[in-house]
Design a protein around this nucleic acid. Structure first.
Length: 421
RNA sequence: GGAAAGGUGGCCGAGUGGUUUAAGGCGACGGUCUUGAAAACCGUUGUGGGGCCAGUCCUCACCGUGAGUUCGAAUCUCACCCUUUCCGCCA
């Protein structure tokens, strides 16, 4: 959520930001008009309330019954007017809040301006795409051949975009999870185990609702929502709290399944394990003071990169353009790992500085010192990393001519073998 | 799922319709005293919105949430949520 005061005083900044994001600007004028209306009515209503409060107190002290009745009649009318104003205010505020909640965060001035992903900039490539003296196979070929990915049975159980990992496939994924969580701990992130079914307010606070309703799974009977990322519950860990400035930055990591309807990407990436309705992810998340956010962003990016470096994978770092930067984010780096089988750069991590955008929605504040005024915290999130795509990269990069797959050194102690196949 | 009890500020806790402007206590912070500390005493101690004469200022809202009754609600009514205990079921 943007600061209403910023929208009010610098509407042109917001208007330009919306244009840069390739977003429509019409609702901004509605917001400004509603905000003015709201304050006008609020002012009058408060005067009436003040009058009623004072008069009611008088009535309590009046000895004369007739005078008391006269005042009561008078106040009854005032009460009616207050009710009318409040009904009007309720309507205006609902509309205003509804519109304001759809405004995306302002994008950092360093992000390239452009309407979509084509304007993203590759900052650097780390490593060299691996060469093979045979034609590397795609994971959807390799996996089933090794008996470690079973697409048919996934479809049998749940339909398209589901799969089963079996034997060393399941074990490899578990190894990656353990490896990543251990690495995060060394990097200073506290591990948490979280609910993956949450209430509506939780998704609103982290920015997924109301805008991305179509991408979420929802249990209508109990009104639980399935999280699309651990970012959602972690954001709300400190929702409505005032943190101690001395404790910041607070860094968390979590391993969770993620659930996405992928309605927007129907038909896209339907082959392999790249894009499923259910996938696992290790997530990083940081709560900090505004002035710490930039350093934490740099750190989180480096921390995510360390995963890929340790696994010996080639990847590139992208800075997202204004039009491709996520709703909540001020600036986002994407990490894309090279998959030589399907010949594709796969997005395995998105590392975002969110500023105070989620903190305002979720009510996350901190105090610099005892007695100081509570200020909004800054938050950052980053994948560290998405499991299926990391697994694709491992399988395709470490495959051998005979169809077996070498296990990257850091995973061996978790997998228990050096070679799968 | 059933039954009972409960939900008030950072914490404990009083408050069953009007000097409550949420008592009192604890904690925290500031001050006096002290070589220093403790004790004692004095003072301060929430969040959000709005206003203008921009202040040590005025005002509105907030006692689990939402409706309602009333001139006036922490207090009365209704619904819901949550917590605790017991029962049932269960990994």
């Amino acid at each position: 959520m943007l600061d209403i005061n910023l929208i009010r005083t610098q509407p042109e900044v917001v208007r330009q930001a919306l244009r840069d994001r390739n977003d429509s600007v019409e609702r901004l004028d509605s917001i400004l008009a509603l905000d003015t209306q709201r304050r006008d009515i609020l002012k009058e209503n408060e005067a009436l309330r003040a009058l009623r409060n004072a008069t009611s107190k008088e009535i309590g002290r009046m000895p004369d019954a007739a005078a008391r009745e006269a005042k009561k009649t008078e106040m009854r009318e005032v009460g009616d007017r207050i009710s009318q104003y409040e009904a009007e205010l309720g309507r205006i505020e609902a509309e205003l809040d509804g519109l304001t909640a759809t405004l995306p965060n302002l994008v950092d001035a360093r992000a390239p301006v452009g309407p979509d992903e084509d304007s993203n900039v590759v900052l650097r490539v780390e490593g060299t795409p691996k060469t093979f003296d045979f034609k590397p196979r795609e994971h959807w070929d390799l996996g089933p051949a090794l008996g470690i990915i079973d697409f048919e049975r996934g479809v049998k159980l749940s339909g398209s975009r589901f799969y089963v990992l079996a034997g060393m496939g399941a074990r490899l994924q578990r190894a990656l999870i353990a490896f990543m969580l251990d690495l995060r701990q060394k990097q200073g992130y506290r591990e948490v185990y979280l609910p993956v079914m949450v209430k509506e307010q939780t998704l609103f606070a982290s920015g997924q609702l109301p805008k991305f309703r179509d991408n979420l799974y929802h249990d209508a009977e109990e009104d639980y929502w399935f999280v699309p990322t651990a970012e959602v519950p972690i954001t709300n860990l400190h929702g409505g709290e005032i943190l101690e400035g001395a404790d910041l930055p607070l860094r968390y990591c979590a391993y969770t399944p993620c659930f996405r309807r992928e309605k927007m990407s129907a038909g896209k990436d339907s082959r392999g394990i790249k894009r499923g309705h259910q996938f696992d992810k290790v997530e990083m998340y940081t709560f900090c003071a505004p002035e710490q956010a930039e350093a934490e962003h740099v750190k989180m990016l480096a921390d995510a990169e360390e995963t890929l470096k340790a696994l010996g994978l080639t990847y590139r770092v992208k800075l997202l353009a204004t039009g491709d930067t996520g709703f909540c984010a001020r600036m986002t780096y994407d990490l894309e790992v090279w998959a030589p089988g399907c010949q594709e750069w796969l997005e395995v991590s998105s590392v975002s500085n969110v500023g105070d955008f989620q903190a305002r929605r979720a009510g996350i504040k901190f105090r610099r010192e005892r007695g100081a005024k509570a200020e909004l915290a800054a938050t950052l999130n980053g994948s560290g990393l998405a499991l299926p795509r990391t697994m694709i990269a491992v399988l395709e990069n470490y495959q051998r001519a005979d169809g077996s797959v070498e296990v990257p050194e850091p995973l061996r102690k978790f997998v228990g073998v050096d070679v799968i196949g």
